[in-house]
């Protein structure tokens, strides 16, 4: 059972998570916050113990044991400028990374655009969904899944998963972890509103693939090159021969 009091004591934010919804089971925390327009408090956090259809990109599923992990979404309803959405994307993975470093001293690595890895295994995945009317994004949800106390991961995966319990060799408080992530996220969000440079640099510092030969896979297309950098909008710059290609999406891995 998630102890809301324990979570609340550690929460140190102005608005992120101040409106907190706890749910046993939903289809997807992202879908619910995005489509139910009566959720209209900025910073609302919806935590579900179980998602019937948790998902990632391309309708990939996100499977998580009930009650052992964290699956939640953060709703942002202030007007968001277009490139800020990408910054929030990178910033969300940074918020998770910092929490894992601060609380459990884990050696965290970020994989473009927003996977969080420990020992080259996936510990957290993030999917952002937004809706725009006209040319303005007016609702944005940051969906975050973290493997916390799940002891093992039977099955086949594209990237081997791991959990904090496996890496830290102990079960941990989900309440403390959630509040730490939300505290970090709010600080990052405020920083991004002013200037993205620091956040982009903090992200770069945790991305071990910059400068490496990588491949980017999307559907049946494979692109090989050198991971030059990310640009000011967060897009991946891939050096292919003498040309730089700007990459918007795809699965990145070492060649």
């Amino acid at each position: 059972m998630f102890n809301i009091e324990e979570f609340d004591i550690k929460l140190d934010t102005d608005f992120i998570g101040r409106n907190f919804i706890y749910s046993d089971e939903v289809d997807s925390t992202n879908s619910l916050l995005l489509t139910k327009k009566d959720f209209n408090i900025d910073g609302t956090v919806l935590l579900a113990e179980f998602q019937r259809s948790g998902r990632g990109r391309k309708n990939r599923t996100w499977i998580s044991n009930a009650g052992q992990n964290l699956t939640f979404s953060i709703l942002l309803i202030n007007e968001i400028k277009e490139n800020k959405a990408n910054h929030i994307n990178l910033g969300a993975s940074l918020a998770v990374a910092q929490a894992l470093e601060n609380l459990y001293q884990l050696n965290v690595e970020l994989k473009w655009p927003n996977d969080v890895l420990v020992s080259k295994k996936k510990i957290s995945g993030i999917l952002i969904e937004s809706s725009s009317k006209g040319s303005k994004i007016n609702r944005l949800v940051v969906g975050i899944g973290i493997n916390v106390n799940q002891p093992n991961f039977p099955g086949k995966f594209e990237i081997q998963p791991t959990s904090i319990r496996k890496e830290f060799k102990s079960t941990v408080s989900r309440e403390k972890l959630l509040s730490e992530i939300l505290n970090n996220f709010e600080i990052i969000y405020y920083q991004l509103k002013k200037n993205a440079t620091k956040i982009l640099n903090d992200w770069r510092n945790r991305c071990k693939l910059i400068g490496e030969k990588i491949k980017i896979v999307e559907e049946d297309k494979i692109l090989n090159g050198v991971f030059e950098d990310i640009d000011e909008d967060g897009f991946l710059l891939l050096k292919v021969g003498n040309k730089i290609e700007k990459i918007y999406f795809g699965d990145v891995s070492l060649r």
Partner: peptide
């Protein structure tokens, strides 16, 4: 009508639904 979802534009791991205005 206003609010009808028309399409999705994806960039990085961000899926943006575009509604009619």
């Amino acid at each position: 009508a206003t609010g009808t979802v028309l399409c999705i534009v994806e960039a990085m791991k961000l899926l943006n639904e575009i509604e009619s205005d």
